[in-house]
């Protein structure tokens, strides 16, 4: 059975999220397995020029839903447009990034269409004509292979888990008519820190834990800046009020899979380990040689973090010169 794969591209402030390119690359592989083609949909306002940025990732068709009412994401409006496009192009598989927006949109869409949804997946395959997705459960303590029935199926992909592989495609750009019914929610204000990489998409994450001893994370921030990293925090650091909940890594916070994870003064409670164990390389800086994180780290530096972190920052700056 031939199934086309539709990727819902996510852009924020006119820039595509990295996970969008990951989804396109994963989608292209799936389309090869199902014998279908890769398609993409971009929603937003004043995004005419943007669609071309997707051309290099193998999509046969790039659809653009450009409307003032889509300038900011609201679950209702985006669901309406996406459901309309799905009805029209009848994909077999719909892929989104498992971002705040992607997860919300996927959930509402699954109910609108009465179809299967697998959230936050780390791997995808087609087995005997059925999509099988691998997804973490229990905050990453377990991985589940789940089979999705019916058509279409919706899958959201965890950021930083798919390899981006540029590929040629026809990349025909098509405008999609936007008709919106009643939308009862709207974005009335927004605030973005410019240039800040989100934890879930960062290549490098530097995290401070209870060992920080207080809200002064300046040493961690300086190291993160030298590395081009995002700053995370352990649950203890968030509970103490030292960092905002948005920075929390772990089972009740964010799950991250960066290339490099540097844990400073983090003991490594099971909830924290669940949220960062899929990092490619883990470094632990901790003065306690018995801390659980030491047993999980590829490189452990057992010493006072207040001496190590500034020295590390200086050494990395030297390296990057």
């Amino acid at each position: 059975m031939t199934h086309n794969v539709l990727v819902v591209a996510e852009q924020i402030q006119g820039v595509f999220r990295k996970v969008t390119f990951e989804a396109l690359s994963a989608g292209l592989k799936l389309a090869a397995q199902t014998g279908g083609e890769l398609q993409a949909l971009v929603l937003g306002s004043g995004i005419d020029g943007l669609a071309a940025d997707l051309k290099a990732y193998g999509a046969a068709k790039i659809m653009v839903a450009d409307d003032a009412a889509l300038a900011d994401f609201t679950t209702e409006a985006y669901t309406q447009v996406l459901a309309g496009v799905i009805e029209q192009v009848q994909p077999g598989i719909v892929l989104l990034g498992a971002t705040t927006q992607g997860k919300d949109l996927a959930a509402r869409l699954s109910a609108r269409l009465n179809v299967a949804l697998a959230t936050d997946c780390v791997a995808l395959a087609v087995e005997a004509g059925q999509v099988v997705a691998t997804r973490p459960m229990y905050g990453g303590k377990i991985l589940a292979d789940v089979a999705l029935s019916g058509t279409p199926v919706i899958v959201s992909l965890r950021p930083n888990t798919q390899t981006i592989a540029p590929s040629a495609g026809a990349g025909t750009i098509e405008k999609v008519a936007v008709t919106l019914g009643a939308v009862r929610s709207q974005v009335v204000a927004k605030q973005f820190e410019s240039g800040k990489v989100d934890l879930t998409e960062a290549d490098i994450v530097v995290t401070g834990g209870r060992g920080m001893g207080g809200p002064d994370f300046s040493a961690i921030e300086a190291l993160a800046e030298a590395l081009g990293a995002a700053v995370g925090a352990s649950r203890s650091a968030v509970d103490e009020g030292w960092r905002s909940a948005a920075d929390q890594v772990g089972q009740t916070g964010k799950t991250v899979s960066p290339n490099l994870y540097v844990a400073c003064g983090v003991s490594g409670a099971i909830q924290h380990l669940a949220g960062m164990s899929s990092s490619k390389v883990i470094v632990a800086v901790n003065k306690d040689p018995e801390a659980p994180i030491i047993g999980k780290a590829d490189y452990a530096l057992v010493d006072d973090l207040f001496e190590v972190v500034p020295a590390l920052t200086a050494e990395i700056k030297k390296l990057k010169k």
Binding site: V115, A116, L117, A118, V132, P136, M137, G140, K141, I142, L143, A144, D145, V146, A147, L148, S149, G150, V153, S277, S278, I282, P289, I294, G295, K296, A297, D298, Y299, A300, L301, V302
Partner: peptide, 20 residues
Amino acid sequence: PLVTIKALKMPVERKGGRVI
């Protein structure tokens, strides 16, 4: 259910590496 678990597995367990 439209989504059914086929198999559960444990993630690859990380072993400690090198203490510098």
